[in-house]
Simulated scan of single mutants.
Amino acid sequence: MSIKFLLICSLLGLLSVAQADLKFGFYVKTCPKAENIVFQYVREHIPHAPSLAAALLRMHFHDCFVRGCDASVLLNSTSKIPAEKTSPPNLSLRGFDFIDKIKSLIEEECPGVVSCADIISLVARDSVLVIGGPFWNVPTGRRDGLISNATEALNNIPAPTFNFTALTKSFASKGLDVTDLFLLSGAHTIGVSHCSSFSNRLYNFTGKGDQDPALDPFYAANLKKNKCKVPNDNTTIVEMDPGSFKTFDLGYYKLLLKRRGLFQSDAALTTDVVTKSSIIKLVSSPLEVFFKEFAMSMEKMGRIEVLTGSSGEIRKNCAVVNS
């Protein structure tokens, strides 16, 4: 038996152990009330601020795409390294205080046991569930990362200007396929955006003061008249799914088929024949089908490059590493 073969077997063994550490009911003995504390806080507060559900779901996505689901998005900058929070894709993130409050409640119950990474994952799921969206399984046992780098966020989080090729490459680098891409994009059904994230499609698509031909002209005219009245408006908010942006439904996909997705990355989903066909099929299916498939992709995303076992740490304060 070769040394190379033994090394491969050892590596596979370590990987399987790491996966085994992420499991349902991870805190059942060490902090049995943890998941209920999260859910009760979410159930009490999200109905009064339903738009926060989209923000917390987005935070989970942005966290997992940089160094995996390790709560690195929550860390503050150090004197040497600007944190992910300060990176352009994350400047509009919100809900950090929401996570901090839940963390403090859990710390009172069982200090130093539950990771910030697990809290983000649970909060994202519970927030969507409370506003009437799908439930998905959240195995726990994630540990918190020690590094947060703004440049890594800029390099890893898919941009709203991405075309289909760039999107599939980005998702593939995280172990997600094309199906995960168009299903996870469905989170935009409850999302909002600043005009500045897509105003180039309205005012200067190719640098010649033109409009993106892929965007429905009537919709573009309405946006310019009633919402994004000037280029690069950083304050005005536009719903990704106008008419039902507080409801987790199929409205986002229906708008894509009408060429009314806000981002280039939204419109890109219909430029691939197979993906467009899948969207058409999804739209004509019962809502429960979308819920079930979205749930599977969310659980898959929640496992990206997780730290388990003795890797990382359990932060006492989600914004700083333990001293």
Rank of each mutant, 00 (worst) to 15 (best):
T236R: 07
G133K: 06
A150P: 11
T161G: 07
F294R: 03
G191S: 14
K208S: 05
T168Q: 09
K227G: 03
I304E: 07
S2Q: 04
S2I: 11
I237Y: 08
V38R: 04
T151W: 11
F5S: 03
T206D: 07
T275A: 04
S277W: 06
D216N: 13
K281Q: 06
S277N: 12
H194V: 08
E107I: 05
L184C: 05
I190M: 05
A53S: 15
D212H: 04
G141P: 10
Y253A: 09
H62K: 08
G68Y: 09
S277H: 13
D272I: 02
N204Y: 05
G13S: 01
P88Y: 15
V230C: 04
E305T: 04
N149G: 02
G186Y: 10
V178W: 00
T168K: 00
D180I: 02
P82F: 03
K208D: 06
D249G: 09
I46F: 11
S265T: 04
R143M: 12
S193A: 15
E35M: 04
A319M: 11
I37A: 06
T151E: 11
G309R: 01
I304S: 05
P217E: 01
G132N: 02
L105K: 12
P89M: 12
G95T: 15
Y219M: 07
I190W: 06
V320K: 10
K225A: 15
D216L: 14
D100H: 12
T271Q: 05
D210N: 01
S2K: 01
P139A: 11
K169S: 01
K316S: 07
Y219R: 00
F291Y: 14
A153T: 10
F24N: 12
R125T: 05
V306I: 14
S51C: 00
S87A: 13
L256H: 06
A214S: 12
P134L: 01
D177R: 07
N149C: 13
V283I: 12
P217I: 09
S199C: 14
V66I: 15
S193E: 11
D100Y: 13
